[in-house]
């Protein structure tokens, strides 16, 4: 099964990247290409919905890791939600992404995004 990538802005500044299928040597370059314009523009957060991702290899983790680094540089958020157990295990083994970027659901990740946005706003006011 190849990789299907759906990108949509769910809230102002919060971009969802929903992945379906396999993120491997064959498909990782495609994801990287699709993420480039997103990372080049104005973005507050990229939230990956991983619920339909069935397979990941180190090439896939590399793309996530590069995205994490690019967002961190822009002071934007990197959020991973809904990982299937085998994907979670590989990401944990790789230790390439901080555990606090992983959320058990989209709802939880989006609530975190909202809370952080509020914090930024309050910080600006005071």
């Amino acid at each position: 099964m190849p990789l299907h990538i759906a990108i949509a802005e769910k809230k102002p500044g919060l971009h969802e990247v929903a992945l379906t299928g396999r993120l491997d040597t064959d498909t990782a370059p495609e994801l990287e290409k699709r993420l480039d314009p997103l990372l080049a523009g104005k973005v507050a957060a990229v939230r990956f919905d991983m619920s339909s991702l069935e397979y990941i290899s180190s090439m896939g983790i590399r793309v996530l890791f590069k995205t994490f680094k690019a967002l961190r540089q822009k002071k934007a958020m990197f959020l991973l939600a809904n990982l299937q157990p085998q994907i979670k295990k590989v990401i944990e083994i790789a230790q390439a992404l901080p555990p606090e970027t992983v959320f058990s659901s989209v709802k939880e990740a989006d609530e975190y995004f909202d809370a952080m946005q509020r914090k930024v706003l309050e910080g600006d006011v005071s």
Binding site: S58, K66, F68, K69, R72, V90, I93, Q95, A96
Partner: peptide
């Protein structure tokens, strides 16, 4: 193995594949 002592932000993704092989 990858250098796990470095902060994630400073690390590069090299050696990851072989690390996965040994761990899985």
């Amino acid at each position: 193995a990858p250098d796990f002592d470095r902060p994630v932000e400073c690390r590069d993704a090299g050696g990851l594949g072989i690390h996965l092989v040994r761990a899985l």
